[in-house]
Nucleic acid binder design. Sequence first.
DNA 1: TAAAATGTTCAAAAAATATTGAACATTGGT
DNA 2: ACCAATGTTCAATATTTTTTGAACATTTTA
Lengths: 197, 197
Amino acid sequence: MENNILTMPPVKDAPFTKGGSLSVKSSRSPRREDHQTAPPAPLSAFQLESVALFIHVFGALSLPRSIGEIYGLLFSTPEPLSLDDVQMRLQLSRGSASEGLRWLRSLGAVNQVYLPGIRKEHFTAETSLRKLASGYLRDRIDPHLENGPNRLSVLETSIDPASPTAHFEKSRVGQIAGWYKFFGRVLPIVKALAGKF
Amino acid sequence: MENNILTMPPVKDAPFTKGGSLSVKSSRSPRREDHQTAPPAPLSAFQLESVALFIHVFGALSLPRSIGEIYGLLFSTPEPLSLDDVQMRLQLSRGSASEGLRWLRSLGAVNQVYLPGIRKEHFTAETSLRKLASGYLRDRIDPHLENGPNRLSVLETSIDPASPTAHFEKSRVGQIAGWYKFFGRVLPIVKALAGKF
DNA sequence: TAAAATGTTCAAAAAATATTGAACATTGGT
DNA sequence: ACCAATGTTCAATATTTTTTGAACATTTTA
């Protein structure tokens, strides 16, 4: 989990994701000696702010910083970027960049772009709310709901009808069933509305 | 964060939270030698299943296991329980039980009950979807949205109007503004619907 | 007010999660 | 088929988060 939820119930804010900070790597211990392999490739103010913003947004979903960094960079850059571009500009490891991009792709949050005559794959940020929301819901929410009926019946089966608490327990099962119904109603509405923005 | 999001994009399922497991502490390394201070207080099958279910549900929100355990226990128990009850029945540390209960209380997910003539505070699970949802949204979502306009203006300010990418960047800012608008529309609907279940 | 009961805090330890980087694949060009 | 360029995987490491438990604080009863 992103934060210590226990010690700060409402919302954390990583030191540098707030307000108008401009450094991408501020917190985090020294991670590398500079590779002499490539030029530093500094980010613009807009890119730095975007990265900070998306670290924050993804953090609110408890997603790792590197994911936010990558999406933020792609979001704020007009041209498609390659794995190496991402890796160098954000000073990430190859592995992080690769897995992060892969995860974002699987969610539908980044698009793969094939540039004629160029070997490397390039990526751009998907910004359609409909696609972002439906990808997130599909990968991270729906699966839980699909398991629902199954879990519910397991729970129901665990009730001993002879027990004095059986009545109470049945009402609890009914409660949960209602919650699932709620989500079944709400999610389609959310998806539909996302299409309008 | 709850899981390794990178290595398992869609959904994790902790070994024992799936299906019909019956042990509360299964995974997790040995954490204590038995205190000889109190009887074991075994949980019923229904309680064990409930705990497993809520560990899963809270896990989907990247909340710590102990929170799910505590809520699950209260949810599945008719009588109000004290801090000590929770602590002993779940074999949690005093600290975890205290902080977990405090967090759940602050969210509005557990209610404090004063039993006449009994000193210890007792707790029950809040099961009203309206209260649960509004508490969660209030503490964990709304604050992010309140910061939105501020963040957005910082981002906008970072655009250099002379830059050739200024136009692109402005369109990105507009995009984000649209996202915020979406949430401003959707959240009230969700809250309203939650009241009906 | 002292003693007992109850509750909270927080530094240290443990566990979970994310990141790194080098080894391993794969692809494309020659 | 070979080589070079590109991409992925994964064991080791670093970091973050959670849990523990004992010290401290507070409240109640006597």
